[in-house]
């Protein structure tokens, strides 16, 4: 305010950029949790990954492989999301 910006300008040029950098870490973990929680949709018969895995497990009797692959798919995706978020954080980080 001391250099004469309007409150709208303050919000977009100063607060917003800082705010985005600040929320990235917690946003990252929220996104990852959300991704894992999509598996819960299987309980109401939404045909997502967990639902499909359960079907495959029951129909094919290939139990161990099914669940290793399912788990691996989730773990790898979470890892990729985390890596992507870290990249974004680094790109936006202020030079030190």
């Amino acid at each position: 305010m001391a250099i004469g910006l309007t409150s709208m300008q303050i919000r977009t040029s100063i607060i917003a950029p800082l705010m985005i950098r600040n929320v990235l870490p917690s946003l990252s973990s929220t996104i990852i949790s959300l991704f894992k929680d999509t598996s819960l949709a299987a309980t109401i018969a939404v045909p997502e990954l967990t639902f499909a895995s359960r079907k495959i497990n029951v129909e094919s009797f290939r139990v161990i492989e099914t669940w290793i692959v399912t788990s691996a798919l989730y773990v790898v995706t979470c890892f990729l999301i985390a890596a992507l978020m870290r990249l974004v954080e680094r790109r936006l980080a202020l030079p030190r």
Binding site: D37, L40, S53, W67
Partner: peptide
């Protein structure tokens, strides 16, 4: 931690 809890429960049960 990278696996949804539901998957852990189902895996434990079936495996």
């Amino acid at each position: 931690r990278g696996t949804p809890v539901l998957v852990l429960v189902l895996a434990s049960y079936y495996v």
